[in-house]
């Protein structure tokens, strides 16, 4: 009953592990979707590249001191706008900040926004999708209409409007500012995941093992969390991982436009924005190039991870 394995969407033809006959030749089939996916994942070099990158980036976000001992907020105007040298590997900004130190410290904001927003949309969107799909009826209609409305406003425009109207307080600690950004992205980002979850639930709900559990008298929460959720969650996990990169990009784009996170918070978007005025691009391109590389590699790492998970879970796309 509590076996979380089995079919996620009808395309995945592996039967739930419990139903499979014991016996020599059929042991292949006894693997659950997740262990099957894990076997696939382990063989994929892109997965390992992305894992290594993400571990390095996470370390950077948690403990930037391991990578640099320079204070990213210490501006020495005497060395302003210098190209990369032995002392400042990535050069200095026009305020005399060390670009390398800023790039390392900038990881925290981006990673926090990406990870927290993904978790937030999975929780909110997943829950709403589960409820819509499981209960159906007027509740489903209502939640779907509300979702359509939030879905109708593109994320970037929603971000621009909200942060213009309610700018984060510069006095607040970084985590509070990040949470404001996360809150807005979750508010406008949940509907796509809810829609996905609802579709998956509708495909899982009519299955025999759900009916059997219902016939045995399982309560609604038990049906949802023990039988439906484990079998319907796969597509959402894939999309949420792929979206993580998008959220990092949206946060950086907002910072680039001068809203959302703002200086003195340190973020790649802010630094790229400062570096991209035409005079500076000409005089100090290193200010632009290094944060851009870090931002791109971070997004790339999460998209590769999402791609690898999708290929492992959905054999159709191989």
């Amino acid at each position: 009953m509590t076996d979380p394995s089995g079919v996620a969407v009808s395309e995945f033809s592996t039967p739930p592990a419990g139903e499979v006959r014991e016996g020599g030749q059929d042991r292949q089939e006894a693997r659950s979707l997740w262990s099957d996916a894990w076997r696939e994942l382990r063989r994929n070099p892109l997965f390992w590249i992305s894992v290594v990158l993400i571990v390095v980036l996470l370390t950077m976000a948690v403990a930037p001191q391991l990578f640099t001992s320079t204070d990213p907020r210490y501006g020495d105007l005497a060395v302003a706008r210098q190209p990369p040298s032995a002392e400042h590997v990535f050069g200095t900004t026009s305020q005399g900040y060390d670009v390398y130190a800023r790039v390392i410290h900038g990881a925290r904001a981006s990673i926090l926004v990406g990870v927290l927003t993904s978790i937030g949309t999975v929780v909110v969107g997943g829950l709403i999708g589960l409820i819509s799909g499981f209960y159906g009826g007027w509740l489903d209609a209502l939640l779907s209409r509300v979702g359509e409305i939030f879905f109708a406003i593109p994320l970037l425009l929603a971000g621009i409007l909200t942060f213009y109207l309610f700018p984060p307080d510069l006095e607040d600690p970084l985590i509070l500012q990040v949470l404001t950004v996360v809150g807005v992205l979750v508010l406008f980002g949940w509907p796509s995941l809810a829609r996905l979850m609802r579709g998956a639930v509708l495909q899982v709900k009519p299955n025999d093992y759900v009916n059997a559990a219902r016939a045995l008298g399982a309560s609604a929460p038990r049906l949802i969390f023990q039988h439906i959720l484990p079998n319907a969650v796969a597509p959402m996990i894939v999309v949420a991982t792929l979206n993580l990169g998008t959220y990092i990009a949206v946060e950086a784009t907002l910072a680039f436009l001068g809203i959302g996170l703002r200086s003195p918070a340190i973020s790649w978007g802010i630094d790229i924005s400062l570096a991209s005025s035409i005079g500076l691009v000409r005089a100090a391109p290193h200010m632009l190039i290094f944060p851009s590389i870090f931002l791109t590699v971070t997004i790339l790492a999460f998209i590769m991870l999402g791609d690898a998970i999708r290929d492992a879970i959905d054999p159709k796309l191989k």
Binding site: G245, A249, A252, T253, F256, I272, S273, A275, S276, V281, L288, I289, S292, L295, T296, V297, I299, L300, I303
Partner: peptide, 11 residues
């Protein structure tokens, strides 16, 4: 896909 549009633009 991984390079945000504002980075593509500036570069």
């Amino acid at each position: 896909i991984s390079i945000p549009v504002f980075v593509v633009g500036s570069l």
